[in-house]
């Protein structure tokens, strides 16, 4: 394990930011800290970096106890949401900063900066000022700056949060490929479940200062530990007192399957290739259930407003009882 976080507690005044948090972050992996805003994930990342101190508990990085080490001595790379560019320095100077602090020979710095500029595809921009770069380029510069010192762990705080949707997607794919190339242990904070599912090897779900679940994206999606994890990772709907994914509910036009529940389609909304059906149960409560089917499926069954249907969860559906 590259990072061991043990029994961390942190309060800001009366607000409990982290409560007895224990996390092990595996070496060489890309781990996401996922959760809603204000849930404590950024605080945890900053405690790992040494930018914030915990009230109690310990942080171990690469086998050494880092709890009392100042940020300068932890050898971590940190990337900020708003880039934290050194505005008065050129892009190359920004990247060289950590190496200059470490008093590396000039030639070595020069070579290393050139190498990193290439890695982040900013070869042409070394002499520019950060203000002359786009947001995505600035964040790549910040990443190169953090990587320059060959950190034992790379920590990213909502690294794509300040970018446009399109750039965010590009940069996210790029980060995944970069990580496959560089293999540095990486932890990034995000509140975007799609980002976490797409990019990371492992996800730590954090909510209200506690770890809700740790696992691979598949594990989390297929076997959520509780209703919070399930609903945070994607859309859900309630059928028969149980939480399901809307695409995990089968729709039949005949009451064939045992235990299937009769209902009536009350609304349909087409979004690209999928169709979201709002279905009202024909029981006393008239509960509404959301079901997602493909466009082709909808056509073949002739599903539309007012049609009577029977609902049944699919065979291996992820399900969590509603508390």
């Amino acid at each position: 394990m590259s990072i061991e976080v043990k029994n961390i507690n942190k309060r800001f005044g009366n607000f409990v930011a982290l409560e007895n948090v224990n996390v092990s972050i595996p070496t060489g992996q890309l781990t996401a800290l996922l959760g809603p805003s204000g849930g404590g994930k950024t605080t945890l990342l900053r405690i790992i970096a040494g930018l914030e101190s915990a009230d109690s508990g310990s942080v171990e990085i690469e086998g050494t106890d880092a709890t009392q080490l100042p940020v300068q001595k932890r050898n971590v790379g940190f990337v900020f949401q708003h880039y934290a560019a050194f505005k008065h320095m050129s892009v190359a100077k920004n990247i060289a900063f950590g190496l200059e602090i470490r008093k590396r020979p000039k030639d070595e710095i020069k070579d290393r900066v050139a190498e990193l500029l290439e890695l982040v595809h900013l070869e042409q921009f070394g002499h520019r000022l950060p203000s002359q770069l786009s947001g995505g380029q600035r964040q790549r510069m910040a990443l190169a700056r953090a990587l320059a010192v060959e950190p034992s762990v790379l920590l990213l705080d909502e690294p794509f949060g300040a970018l446009d949707a399109k750039v965010r997607k590009e940069l996210r794919d790029w980060l995944r490929r970069l990580h496959d190339e560089v293999h540095v242990t990486t932890v990034f904070v995000t509140h975007d479940q799609e980002e976490a599912l797409e990019v990371s090897d492992e996800i730590v779900v954090i909510n209200e200062g506690r770890v809700e679940q740790v696992g691979s994206p598949d594990t989390l999606y297929d076997s959520p530990a509780n209703d919070f994890v399930m609903s945070f990772l994607g859309p859900t709907t309630i059928l028969d007192g149980t939480l399901y994914r809307p695409h995990d509910i089968d729709v039949f036009t005949h009451p064939g399957i045992e235990g299937s529940i009769p209902a009536r389609i009350v609304r349909e909304l087409r979004v690209g290739f999928e169709v979201r059906l709002t279905v009202e149960l024909l029981d006393a409560d008239h509960e509404e259930v959301t079901v997602t089917v493909t466009r082709a499926h909808q056509r073949s069954l002739g599903l539309s407003d007012g049609i009577d249907v029977w609902l049944s969860p699919t065979h291996a559906a992820a399900a969590v009882p509603v508390p």
Binding site: P70, A84, F86
Partner: peptide, 9 residues
């Protein structure tokens, strides 16, 4: 920005 510099040593 200052934190970034600190994290770089």
């Amino acid at each position: 920005v200052e934190e970034a510099a600190a994290s770089l040593g």
